[in-house]
Design a protein around this nucleic acid. Structure first.
Lengths: 333, 333
DNA sequence: CTGAAAGCGCTTACAG
DNA sequence: CTGAAAGCGCTTACAG
């Protein structure tokens, strides 16, 4: 279908070295030659064989996208689906293919071996992980460039892209406090993930800012799942009176919303509600959800570009990039 | 980390040909030699370089998993997330890596070129598609082995794995009719996808079986999304009285459930409800959802195995495999 | 049953 | 700026 570099060379009447140079953007090609080869490349629709490319020591332009096993349960959260879509999109736009590795405890060892040994992947993106995930540790000690989405608290030597969860959560809760809501419940994410931990931290900080005590009775443990949030909130509402709820994800906000409405309380009159993520569903709930918007496209693009940078210039040190979130005020608070 | 075949050969004191043969299960190796090489392979944890393998004419053991652009919107339906997890699992268990291609209109052409030209992938799995998707057509006309999840109505030359959507939907509606529910609304999936079309077909057939007329006023168009189902159902309940609802997916059943309950109707006393999929959420709704269970693990495993079969024995003709669904009776009908 | 050799399609010093 | 040549790590006839 697409032929080999040799055939292109023949058509363009140059050596295969020259074709390869053009393909790889090597500056040591006369401009006229380059244009000519480029033209042949275009008309033939040539696609270099990535396997050969990789084998010969170049980059295959393949990125490994890893979902650690501890996170696999969350895989059906729309946040993930959307994140993966944007990562995939960012890769396509940069002519990078994506290899998906859903880590599973049983195959984790083998997976790492394959990632390293199979010689396919130029670098690796870890999409969210549990704190101190051994998989991340292993990856970090491998020669493969690595970028995480979500910061790694104990490892600033690993490049990561994250939203400022602490500050964002704090701002969300401030917003509720400013609107006169004193008793604010929190629906937490998993506390073994940094995003869950940080958002809870932000909640606590906001209370402190206002000189309020943390009331453990107002803390609903959650796992980023709608159902858990629904149940937890339902139970809480039976014993406590609250004026507002901060949910650490939109999925959980949805669950909380259902519980609040089921309890016969009005949103936002009786109970205000702020979520986190700004998934598409947030604008379609009734009333529409006020929430902290995660810049998912930005996270994806930045992660992919950071990784590519790391692949092409391994000498560049690790980077921690923090992206801002934005409060989107709608009808729930 | 894992070394090359050459190093294994040296340790095992055989030629690299022999190592390659045991690696590939070639029967022309003396049993004692094989055991010895296997032992060395085991102790070294050797991983063959897939890029080299593929280049040399063997199989890379990489499967391309394609989500066509027409389906990308559905990507955040938990059904997809779970399906992908199972596919990934089935591949890991068979030592196959997964390359993810979320097709996007803008990059679709390039993607196909890459799939074919990049020489990375041994075969391709299309996870659900729109009817007569041009992407599937292109793939079908390529030399790459192809298996679809979801049947392709006009192309029996393509291997496909599917659940019997028509019959399953029919059984679901029969179940409601048998329980004395005469006026049954349907929340449809997209009618440009075979699963949406077939389930509607099953609904219509069931009505016919009972000598009932199809009432267009009872048909809620949907796109497999909870929100659309919620709105559609809400609108329907304002003008119609129904005794039951058949939703073509669990996500939509959830939306319908919310609408029914919001309208002050009891489930199942006033309105019975049957979904389709049996996602984890089905057992956790209130009341728990009665639904047709799709054998997702079975679909995934069968699809992967069919594709591997197709890769290893291209002479085998295409296969259409239909898996049974099962009605799971819970609290909604 | 086993090994030496050619070749897969690239990249990258090396020489000019 | 360009080309001839070596080499990446495998597989697979070919010869024995």
């Amino acid at each position: 279908l697409t032929g080999t570099i040799e055939e292109i060379a023949k058509i363009a009447k140059v050596s295969r070295s020259t074709v390869s140079r053009v393909l790889n953007g090597d500056p040591n090609v006369r401009e006229k030659t380059r244009q000519h080869v480029l033209e042949v490349l275009r008309t033939t629709g040539f696609q270099p064989n990535r396997a050969a490319r990789r084998l010969a020591g170049g980059h295959a332009r393949i990125i490994g996208l890893i979902i650690p096993s501890g996170v696999a349960r969350l895989f059906s959260d729309p946040f993930f689906a959307i994140l993966i879509q944007h990562i995939s999109h960012a890769c396509s736009a940069r002519d990078q293919a994506v290899m998906l590795w859903l880590a599973e405890p049983e195959y984790e060892r083998r997976m790492i071996g394959q990632l390293l040994g199979s010689g396919l992947v130029d670098g690796v993106l870890v999409a969210s992980s549990v704190i101190d995930d051994p998989l991340v540790e292993a990856l970090h000690h491998s020669p493969l460039p690595l970028v995480m989405i979500g910061r790694s608290p104990h490892r600033t030597e690993i490049s990561s892209i994250d939203v400022d969860n602490i500050e964002s959560a704090r701002r969300a809760v401030h917003y509720l406090l400013e609107r006169g809501r004193g008793r604010i419940a929190v629906v937490n994410g998993p506390q073994n993930m940094i995003s869950g931990l940080d958002r809870f931290e932000g909640y606590k900080t906001a209370l402190q800012d206002w000189g309020l005590e943390l009331d453990p009775a107002l803390v609903v443990p959650g796992e980023f799942s709608e159902e858990d949030a629904f149940r937890g909130m339902e139970a809480l509402l039976q014993r406590e009176q609250v004026q507002a709820v901060f949910a650490a994800s939109d999925s959980m906000a949805l669950g909380a919303m259902r519980a609040i409405q089921k309890a016969g309380l009005r949103i936002p009159e009786d109970v205000a509600l702020v979520g986190f993520d700004d998934l598409p569903l947030a604008s379609r709930t009734d009333p529409p959800l006020t929430t902290m918007r995660q810049p998912i496209p930005g996270l994806a693009v930045t992660a992919v570009e950071t990784l590519i940078q790391q692949i092409n210039h391994p000498e560049t040190g690790p980077k921690q990039i923090v992206l801002p979130a934005e409060l989107v005020i709608r009808g729930t608070g």
